[in-house]
Amino acid sequence: MNSSVFDFLLTAAPADADSADFAAVWARHRARSHDFASSVDRAAIAGFDSAGTGPAFLGGYQEALHALVPSLEPAELSSMCATEAAGARPSTMTTTVNEDGVVSGTKSFATLGAFADRFVVIARAGTRPDGRPILRAVLVPAGARAAVTPLPALPFAPEIPHAEVTFDAAPGQLLPGDGYADYLKPFRTVEDLHVVAAVLGQLVRVARLAQWPAESVEQLLALLATVRGVGAEDPNSPGVHIALGGLFARLTGLRTELEPLWAQVDPEVSKRWERDEPLLGVAGKVRAARLATAWRALA
C-alpha cells in the first residue's frame, strides 16, 4: 500500500480508464482507490488512470458528487441536475418537488445523465415571503419517470456524455438542508477542486510516460498539494474562493510552462490534450464572478 497519493502517482503503473462502459470504469476506480480516504486524492487517481481529459473529468465529477452527497452508494453513478433552459439561477428554475419528494420538470444539461443510477435534482419547493424560491435537493432514481434524451457531443472532451432529463412526477428522496446553500452553491466549488485534481493526476501520468523532467512533476504535485489543502476547507468560505482563484491562475501558468514538453509526448495523446484543453476554461466567467464576490465579502 502506498503511504500517500504522491507516492502512488510517482510509483504506480497507470491503468487505462478510457471506455464507454462508465459503470465498469467507476467500479475499477473505486477498487483501485479504496485505501485513500480523501475524495480529492481519489480524483487525482482517477485522472492518473485516464487516457484523456474527458475520462479524467468524469472521475473527478463523480468523486465531487459523492463528496457532496455522502448518502450516495459508493458503487452508483450519479448526475447533478440543476441547469434548465433558462440557466441554473434559482430565480429561473421551474422544476418542482413536493413535500413527499415527487419531482416534475425538465433539466436541460445533465452530465452523465444517460448512465446515472440516481440524479441529484435541484428543484423548487415553494416561495419565500420575499418572492425568492425555496430550493431543495432530491435524490431521484433513474427509471420510467425520468426520461433521458442524450445531447450531441461537445467539440472538446466528446467522451463526456450529456443529456436532457425530464421528470414526470418522479418519486425521490428529499435531502436535508437548503438546495442552493447546501448543494448547488458548494458543488460548483467542490467540482472545480476535484476536476483540477483529476487533471493534475492525468498530467503526472503524461509526464511519467513521456519522461518529462523531474522539476515538472514536482510542480504538478505541488499544485495538487494546494488543491488538497483548499479542498479541506468549507467550500462556502470567501477565502476558499480567493484561494481557488489563485489556484486556477497557477494552473494556467503551469500549463503554459509545460507546453514545450508536449513535443516529447505520443502525438495522439498530445492531439487529444490540445482538443480537450478548453474544458478547463468552462465556467470561467462564473468562477470570476464568485472570486469578485468573495473579495467584496471580505472588504
Rank of each mutant, 00 (worst) to 15 (best):
Y180A: 00
Y180L: 08
A181P: 00
A181Y: 05
D182W: 08
D182H: 11
Y183F: 12
L184F: 07
L184V: 06
L184K: 06
K185Q: 13
P186L: 11
P186K: 07
R188A: 12
T189V: 15
T189G: 07
T189E: 06
T189D: 09
V190L: 05
V190Y: 01
L193A: 07
V195H: 05
V195K: 03
A198L: 07
V199A: 10
L200P: 01
G201A: 06
G201D: 04
Q202W: 10
L203D: 00
L203W: 03
V204F: 03
V204W: 01
R205A: 12
V206P: 04
R208M: 13
L209Q: 15
L209C: 05
A210L: 09
A210H: 08
Q211E: 15
Q211P: 00
W212K: 08
P213D: 13
A214N: 10
E215G: 11
S216V: 15
V217P: 00
V217K: 14
L220W: 11
L220V: 13
L221Y: 10
L223H: 06
L224A: 02
T226R: 14
V227C: 05
V227E: 04
V227S: 01
R228V: 11
G229R: 13
G229I: 02
G229W: 03
V230G: 03
V230T: 13
G231H: 01
A232R: 15
D234Y: 03
D234G: 09
N236H: 07
P238K: 05
G239L: 14
V240P: 02
V240I: 10
H241A: 10
H241C: 03
H241T: 02
I242F: 00
I242P: 02
I242V: 15
I242W: 02
A243C: 09
G245A: 06
G246E: 05
G246S: 02
L247R: 05
L247H: 06
F248S: 04
F248G: 00
R250D: 14
L251R: 13
T252W: 06
T252N: 12
L254K: 13
L254R: 12
L254V: 11
L254G: 09
R255I: 05
T256D: 11
E259G: 04
E259L: 08
E259P: 01
P260R: 07
P260Y: 05
L261C: 06
W262K: 06
A263R: 07
A263N: 06
Q264I: 04
V265Q: 10
V265P: 09
V265L: 08
P267S: 03
V269F: 04
V269R: 12
S270C: 08
S270W: 00
K271V: 05
K271H: 12
R272I: 03
R272M: 08
W273Y: 15
W273C: 06
D276W: 09
E277P: 01
